[in-house]
Design a protein around this nucleic acid. Structure first.
Lengths: 183, 183
DNA sequence: AAATGTGTTAAATAAATTCTTAATAAACTT
DNA sequence: AAGTTTATTAAGAATTTATTTAACACATTT
């Protein structure tokens, strides 16, 4: 077994760990738990993993792996695969960062656009009511109008963000910014 | 004072609160503390604020406001302004979401590109050493090569992300995706 | 120069989140 | 159909993070 090829084996592990550390560190700035971040980074170098393999590899509990892998599935960074003959579920990490980027940011931005535009529409209606209200003093009307206009202006941004999402989803953005740039 | 224009005044506050709530909720998904998120959203409807005004407005401690506003300055969503005659520092919220977007994501992505590319370069050097190492078995060499190629492929993504940052910083992206789209 | 007002830092408390152990449910095998 | 394996859910423990209170430092004014 130990044919003294221990050193290169160790070096491979160290090299992987450098990348795993960097990926995990950036990921948990993305609102992912440390366990999920480590898990994804670990899976990045594996073909596929079962929950038990994850547990032994990361030295954590199985439920922790279960919830982490589910979170990663939600943001489409991990997919469940069908492995014939094994009763255990197997999971594969998305290794194409373009797809991870698309899944993560489009989901996040769409949510942001939806939530904020809804709030803005409601608020604008309220401001209009105040402007039309005869009991409002001129000063109050002026304030309402100012806020209304500010919100109206901000909508441009949310529409732009929506366009950005669409151009990423459709792949059109890669006509503007090619994937394989030379420099 | 109370000329029975209480109702429109209240309605304005309610309308603002709807938007403040939405902004704050999306913001703390961005790795900002609740206090900072609420603070920014509150400042969004104000011309400028001092630390004491923030404290009374949000009902929180002054150090909390101090650290929050500093965090917001770091991501360039708040700027310090010079107010003649007042000893208190005054702060203004960035109200142009395009600029906030630019500051926040460019900073985050640049950091990510830098960190991960550094780790990748180091790891790739290690993999090359393993490949050249005479004590490495063919199987180990194959593994090292596979990982090396996977990292090489991933670099395309980071270069693309870097290009994206550049096109946002320069404003070139708005030639591709205009700010004022009609639909 | 002393004193007041303002902002920041440090330590401690409070709150929230993450992880684990234990129990339950589901699915597959014999 | 019973038993075994696997995954999930629920509840509890522990760590981490956020906020506050208290002390400090700085600056400005008198």
């Amino acid at each position: 077994m130990s044919e003294s090829n221990e050193r290169p084996r160790m070096k491979i592990e160290e090299a992987k760990d450098k990348v795993i550390g960097a990926i995990a560190e950036t990921m948990d700035l993305y609102g992912v738990t440390p366990a999920a971040a480590n898990l994804y980074a670990t899976m990045y170098f594996k073909d596929q993993m079962t929950l038990d393999e994850m547990r032994t590899e990361l030295g954590m509990s199985k439920p922790s792996m279960s919830t982490s892998v589910r979170k990663l599935q939600e943001i489409e960074m991990v997919k469940k695969t069908f492995t014939r003959g094994s009763r255990k579920h197997t999971y594969v990490a998305e290794k194409n960062f373009f797809r991870s980027f698309m899944a993560f940011y489009c989901q996040m931005w769409e949510r942001e656009v939806k939530m904020n535009l809804e709030a803005i529409e409601e608020a604008q209606e309220d401001f209009i009511d105040v402007i039309k209200d005869s009991t409002s003093t001129p000063e109050i009307v002026a304030t309402a109008k100012k806020h209304y206009d500010q919100l109206e202006e901000s909508k441009k941004y949310y529409h732009w963000l929506d366009d950005l999402v669409e151009s990423i989803r459709s792949g059109k953005i890669f006509e503007f910014l090619p994937k394989d740039q030379e420099d």
